[in-house]
């Protein structure tokens, strides 16, 4: 059986990993994209001071571009790209950035999402690549994965949508401001505070992230949550792409998946119901198998890794299409 797709994906993931984490070392000078630069807004936070939870060695990213997957502001030197989609909204809601400045970025993000859906997750995100590496290592040892039951899957699904909308709501509340200055500071970029990328990425650039911040009760609590999430990230050894099942970024990009221009389409007449697509999906998507109607079978959870398409034994049963044009088929 051919594994051309998997090999291509590994190469793309590796290149993206290097670019996203070391891009600022490769191109140290700032480059203009033409998109408006968003100035740091009010309330001015103290959390960027050394020792605080959001401390980062970063200065400025090479390019002021936000992308859907995990490009992260906590990459050493500010990274190649500005940050992820959740950070973009959290920060700019809190800063009350003018809509005029945000709009071009929102448009760019929307185009990226509408065009490629969660291909970002399957092919670009460095955290996804790290989890794939964990899975690969586990398989080398011949150990099995933990199964995620339907109830657990539903729980995780609800959790990440709660995290997404909860975090965005907090960002808006800070802006009004509903809380006092100290609380505001400590709740700033609340999703970043427990996103594993905040702790994971800086070491790749030789920077020590802030492991603990005990300035007040809130920061101590969020430090704890951050640790817990960091630990959960390593559950990726037992469950393929475990963090993706919690990640709010994936949840947000997932909204575009059904309507994206990049689609997985099925020809049910060719499908032999062998179940391979369901059994081999790293994030346990069942729709590709169970949907018996012709047409798009991309699920909000699907990361377009194309494992199903590659492993499907029936020629032409599954196809990847962009704007209706076939790119690759099973």
């Amino acid at each position: 059986m051919s594994n051309r797709i998997t090999i291509t994906r590994r190469i793309v993931q590796t290149v993206c990993f290097v670019l996203l984490l070391y891009g600022a070392f490769i191109w140290p000078a700032h480059l203009e994209t033409g998109l408006p630069r968003i100035p740091g807004g009010a309330p001015r936070t103290t959390l960027y001071e050394k020792g605080r939870i959001l401390w980062v060695s970063g200065k400025e990213s090479v390019v002021d571009l936000y992308i859907p997957a995990l490009a992260c502001r906590f990459v050493a030197r500010g990274g190649l790209l500005k940050s992820c989609i959740v950070h973009f909204f959290s920060e700019n809601f809190t800063w009350r950035t003018s809509f005029r400045l945000m709009l071009p970025h929102i448009l760019a993000l929307t185009i990226m999402c509408v065009l490629l859906g969660r291909l970002w997750c399957g092919w670009v995100c460095p955290m996804g690549a790290m989890m794939d590496a964990m899975t690969w290592l586990r398989r080398l040892t011949g150990r099995g994965r933990l199964q995620v039951g339907e109830d657990q899957q539903r729980f995780l699904f609800n959790t990440r949508h709660l995290l997404l909308w909860g975090s965005l709501a907090v960002s808006v509340l800070i802006a009004f401001p509903v809380f006092g200055q100290g609380v505001n500071d400590s709740l700033f970029l609340i999703y970043c505070q427990f996103c594993p990328a905040r702790l994971l990425y800086p070491p790749f650039g030789g920077v020590n992230p802030c492991w603990s911040d005990t300035t007040n009760t809130i920061s101590s609590f969020l430090t704890g949550v951050g640790w817990a999430m960091f630990a959960l990230f390593f559950l990726g050894f037992a469950i393929p792409r475990f963090w993706c099942r919690i990640c709010a970024i994936g949840a947000l990009v997932g909204y575009f998946n059904r309507g994206a221009l990049l689609t997985i389409e099925k020809e049910p007449g060719k499908c032999s119901s062998c179940g391979t697509c369901r059994r081999n999906c790293p994030v346990d998507v069942t729709r590709v198998y169970s949907d018996r109607r012709a047409g798009v079978v991309t699920d909000p959870e699907c990361q377009l890794c194309l494992t199903c398409l590659e492993d499907c034994p029936e020629p032409g049963a599954l196809e990847l299409r962009l704007l209706g044009r076939r790119i690759v088929r099973s």
Binding site: R139, R145, N280, P282, P313
Partner: peptide, 14 residues
């Protein structure tokens, strides 16, 4: 003999 087996997981259970 129609059906091949495409493997990803390789534990005994899988």
């Amino acid at each position: 003999l129609y059906q091949p087996v495409a493997l990803r997981e390789v534990s005994m259970r899988a």
